[in-house]
Design a protein around this nucleic acid. Sequence first.
DNA 1: TTTATTATAATTGTATACATAATCAAAGAA
DNA 2: TTCTTTGATTATGTATACAATTATAATAAA
Lengths: 204, 204
Amino acid sequence: MENNKMSAFEVTYEKIRDMIFNGELSNGQKITETKLAEQLGVSRTPIREAIKRLEQEKLIAENRVANPTDRDYQNIFEMRILIEKYAIVKAVQFFTDSDVEEMERLVEIGYSGTKEETMEANKAFHERIVAATKNDVMIDYFNQMQSIIYLFRKTVLHYKRPGLIDEHKAIVDAIKDRDASRAERLIEEHLQADLDFALYYLRK
Amino acid sequence: MENNKMSAFEVTYEKIRDMIFNGELSNGQKITETKLAEQLGVSRTPIREAIKRLEQEKLIAENRVANPTDRDYQNIFEMRILIEKYAIVKAVQFFTDSDVEEMERLVEIGYSGTKEETMEANKAFHERIVAATKNDVMIDYFNQMQSIIYLFRKTVLHYKRPGLIDEHKAIVDAIKDRDASRAERLIEEHLQADLDFALYYLRK
DNA sequence: TTTATTATAATTGTATACATAATCAAAGAA
DNA sequence: TTCTTTGATTATGTATACAATTATAATAAA
């Protein structure tokens, strides 16, 4: 019997996070506990916990919705590239045939799926690579970055960055060929291209 | 005019953390908000926030003082090695003469200082290397790991691991010689030796 | 007009109160 | 004895109350 009853804190956390994602709370906007509490129909207590967690994810800073600078994004991607380059070497070493098939399936969704499906598949693609480290600490840090990365991914896919899915395909091919150095190079180029593209559009 | 008035949350956080560090709260021991609140003379509110943060640092998990497994420590060090190897290449590229002098000063304290001074210097040694990345995200993740790492460092220095300071010296020499690949190799060996030594004594 | 100064309001930090859920022990049934 | 069941206890989650701080705005002085 599963426990599908979420605490007020969890519900609140997700709601506020989604409000930031969909722009209902915009960049730089002041966050006040009282207003959110009233708006979401809970007391300040769970709101505060949610805010603490969102601060940890850098989605909120100094009582405001984060307004990351280019530098912030570059820092996140520098960290992310470091982790994913490390992870993909593990994937090349240890991915089984069925792991590779799963990656190919995710690439296929990128070609034929809806925008939502593609976003999910894109996220899963990178998660599977990082999971290859089998290192919970690394996976945890990677996941912490996801909230900020989400904003990126939305931009990149909204504008349909050319070649994105082809790059994914090329990475899977490198894993299949068990070519670690090629895979490392491709994932770095892929992530760097993502960053450059998103920064370009975020600044327009 | 500086603000040296700490909030109850901050005081509480440091107190609980130190209680874990010095063994007043031992591995696996149950953490109860009510008791800590009474003991530290504050309400449960700041206690809860402190616990949340300690959970983030992995010093508390599931309402208990963390009792990390060898695997946990290995994971942290795998992450740490990844960051420090990346950082030291930056240090080799960008450290000025005065940065190098400062590193040499820290090594010197390792040879001649008290145990407390040596622990501080050891911590500072690695912090300076990571600071060379000038990447706040990376620095932040590294700092999050410090609490667990502290427990290690205490063990390693308590048993006076042979060669530890010599290894620091060799690393500084590699930076002085601007030899990135040697510096990378040395820092990895150094950290791996730290891990192996500490695990050996922690399990005895 | 600009800058201080003060009063007011709003917001956060902390304490307390209450409700729900988890834990544990005792009593009874198999 | 071992396993349920129930009741009592304790702990946590959430709401509310109060205190202290910070921000806002209005007025007075330069």
